[in-house]
Amino acid sequence: MGTTILNPTVRNIYPSELDRFLPSGLVAEIRRLGGSHGRIEEIRLRAGGRCALTTDRGNVFLNTSVTLVELQGILTAMCGNSLYAYRDTINNGYITLRGGIRVGLCGRAATELGGVLGVYDISALNIRIPSPIRSVGECICGLIRRMKKSAGVLVYSPPGVGKTTLLRSVAYKMSSGASPWRVALIDTRGELGCFDEMRGASMDVLSGYPKGIGIEIAARTLNAQLMVCDEIGGDEEASAIISAQNCGVPLLASAHGDTIEGLLRRTEIYRLSRAGVFGAYVRIERRSGGGEYKYTVTEAEEAYALLQNSGRSDSRV
């Protein structure tokens, strides 16, 4: 099934700009560890508990712990002492720092009519460190260039494998070099278009835009040749993408999923596939203990056939 391509190891760096937010004891402990437990991907802080690292080899507990008050102070500092300016993203469970560092958060939610009004008593922060742009995704660029004009590509994997890193790299490669495309990056969470070297490429970054609105703008007013967005989820987003995407511009996107059948069983992904938004699906895997990636490409017709064989019918849509 599909084509398997391997890509080289991606090295990661601990961003020094986190030093001004984190307690000095925690910073010292992380620097002492260095890369002895693998490449640091996430730093986890929990109120009243020990801090932990998520590396490419697994989870590591640290000796440093933080209190509820310290955690709140860290979040306020990350918001530039302007918590009110980040309410929308905090209610969605994250803030994004400079450099594309996404900080997931949770606490006590105040709700009204099923929506989150605010999050108080922050109990945990998950600082996700982005991988820098590296030489990955060349095969995906080739795939996009070979595809029919309007057929897009959906990259999928379980969480934490490297979809965002791949999207960032592909967007950069497609918009730079000898034959650059006009690329529009619908960067809803501020993670994709965060590196300075991306500024010189033929890329327009729509930061903070909801996906449907961003896609419409990219296609109609920015005259993009390729649109890139991260983490498609939910029927509303799918509806917005379908209505905005009937413009002949291919879309490169990502979604959570483990198998092609599982992915297409999700209602919103199935709708997108039946609408012809994606011409190919690319599964990412990571070799255990290292940063080597494996990409498995499944063409749209083949994917649909697999789904038919596994018993999904159109009546479920």
Binding site: C79, N81, Y84
Partner: peptide, 8 residues
């Protein structure tokens, strides 16, 4: 800067 908009 320690609270949300309405409270601020």
């Amino acid at each position: 800067g320690r609270c949300y908009r309405e409270e601020q």
